[in-house]
């Protein structure tokens, strides 16, 4: 996994609550057996008509957000299905950071396994970011080491578990880390039998 230390990018505001993983990546795209290439299907039913043409009214199709790499969403982002295809699609589309007032647990956890930084911030802050980004091209700089997000004039700090932070900063392969505890797992299993 690619380490993520700092990131500066354009914000894409998605002013909706309870964005579920069925919206992030609809089920018809879960049949693939690969990990790559899901970005083209991100928010598919919101972005495209039945005939495959773009829905102009959906904001992600607006050229002003082209190249956005920070998604700011609403409460309970990523709820529903555990499908990791959701963070795969978000990452493959080009997003590195997702900011929301609250996240669903499984989605939040899945992000870290894929080099995406999910940041939980107070709703007043996220709503303000959404307003700014809807208004004009809006960039944020995220510093994971310092646990800070800034737009140049305003800086907010965020909480993150030290374990998650280290994992992203180092781009760890979690399984390789766990296998260093193999003797502990062996001991545990010996007790079981």
């Amino acid at each position: 996994m690619e380490p993520l230390k700092q990131h500066t990018g354009l914000v894409y505001p998605l002013n909706r609550t309870n964005v579920d993983t069925d919206q992030i990546i609809p089920k018809q795209f879960l049949k693939r057996i690969e990990r790559q290439g899901f970005g083209q299907f991100l928010f598919y039913n919101w972005r495209f008509n039945e005939d495959g043409s773009k829905k102009e009214e959906f904001s992600l199709n607006d050229p002003v957000y082209e190249g956005a790499s920070i998604l700011v969403g609403g409460e309970n982002f990523g709820c529903g299905s555990s499908r990791e295809h959701a963070p795969w699609a978000i990452q493959d589309f080009g997003f590195k950071v997702v900011i929301a007032p609250s996240f669903a647990d499984i989605f939040y956890n899945n992000c870290f396994k894929n080099g995406i930084l999910p940041i939980q911030l107070p709703i007043e802050t996220t709503e303000n970011m959404i307003k700014e980004a809807e208004d004009h091209p809006y960039e944020l700089k995220v510093d994971l080491e310092k646990q800070e997000v800034t737009d140049g004039s305003r800086t907010v700090s965020f909480d993150i578990q030290p374990y998650h932070k280290e994992m992203l900063l180092n781009g760890w392969d979690e399984i390789a880390v766990t296998l260093t505890y193999q003797d502990k797992i062996d001991q545990y299993e010996q007790k079981l039998s």
Binding site: I106, I175, L179, Q182, I185
Partner: peptide, 12 residues
């Protein structure tokens, strides 16, 4: 769990 965790449980 997600698929990365599925792999993690399979392995460990």
């Amino acid at each position: 769990i997600g698929t990365s965790e599925v792999e993690h449980v399979l392995a460990t």
